[in-house]
């Protein structure tokens, strides 16, 4: 009886959660369905009509996927995307973690001013940095190399990474660090033994988003790396499926789902770091 009451009282909760999730899913679901429909069907009838006529096989096709997968150099661009994204995710997070640690646990002159500048830099429009940075890269001869794009994504990703990590590291309790220092631990030891392990959840969420932004980036890659097949990432390939007049956009739904697979795997594999109580009891707010 009590159990039933509990289930019943939870009923509105389920309704709300499921409704929101369904609404959020609908646009993507529509494109997923359309990615399996012919270009003709996609452009003349709504994806939802397939619920009425699921067995009208003239509308279904795997051709969009076949065409996208047969794109020249697709595998190579997938590899390029990985080669770009993994270092461009790890590097800024690692570098930012050190800085965030210094900003939250070391006293030095100009600390607040420097940190507020970091926050302010979040809003710098990337377009304004392209010409000076590209010219500098060109002088040292690294335009069109992976080094250039790793450096660029690291530079552009740092402000957010420092900001987020500073917020988290700064919220850790003072006692924890002070007792460590009393025990003779150095800043270095405290960083690796205390700060980093305790901030795994925020590191994980930061990693997810930095990875996604880099993975889905088109413009920064075009500027610093270019669109030649040997270095072009997946986003550049996908954008080029469509011609300059916009024809062949019916391939984009299939392409979007193919390029989404990896980010979703990353999201699911990082989920385990969001478990309850990783810090429960050891940290106050």
């Amino acid at each position: 009886m009590k159990k039933l009451r509990k289930t019943l009282s939870k009923f509105p909760l389920h309704i709300v959660v499921i409704t929101i999730a369904l609404i959020w899913m609908t646009p993507s679901l529509g494109v997923l369905i359309n990615s399996f429909r012919t270009s003709q069907a996609m452009k003349t009838s709504g994806w939802w009509t397939m619920f009425a006529t699921p067995f009208n096989f003239t509308q279904w096709t795997l051709e969009n996927y076949a065409t996208v997968l047969a794109t020249q150099d697709l595998a190579r661009s997938f590899r390029n995307s990985l080669l770009i994204s993994i270092p461009a995710t790890i590097l800024p997070i690692l570098i930012a973690a050190f800085a965030a640690y210094a900003f939250s646990w070391m006293e030095f002159p100009g600390r607040q001013v420097l940190f507020s500048i970091v926050v302010g830099l979040l809003v710098v429009p990337l377009q304004m940095t392209f010409v000076p940075i590209y010219a500098a890269f060109n002088k040292i001869g690294i335009t069109g190399t992976f080094l250039a794009i790793w450096a660029a994504h690291t530079g552009y990703g740092l402000p957010f990474a420092v900001y987020l990590l500073r917020n988290f590291l700064g919220a850790l309790p003072k006692d924890l660090f002070e007792s460590a220092w009393l025990d003779g631990a150095s800043f270095w030891t405290a960083f690796w033994r205390l700060a980093l392990p305790l901030s795994v959840p925020s590191l994980a969420s930061l990693a997810i988003f930095q990875f996604l932004w880099v993975w889905n980036d088109l413009l920064v890659a075009l500027i610093y790396l270019g669109g030649t097949p040997s270095v072009a990432p997946l986003t550049v390939r996908v954008a080029n499926l469509v011609n300059s007049l916009g024809a062949d956009w019916h391939l984009l739904p299939a392409a979007a789902f193919i390029s989404m697979i990896l980010p979703l795997i990353v999201f699911f594999s990082m989920q385990q770091y969001f478990v309850r109580g990783i810090l429960a009891g050891s940290v106050k707010g």
């Binding site: 006293e107 940095t129 800043f187």
Partner: peptide, 28 residues
């Protein structure tokens, strides 16, 4: 919070240098 002289610049240095190049210099 502990006051130390050179260490903070070692920890925050890479970030500050990268930001100076990628964002501060273009902003100026």
């Amino acid at each position: 919070m502990r006051r130390v002289r050179f260490l903070p610049w070692l920890y925050a240095g890479p970030t500050l240098l990268l930001l100076a190049f990628f964002l501060v210099y273009p902003s100026l």
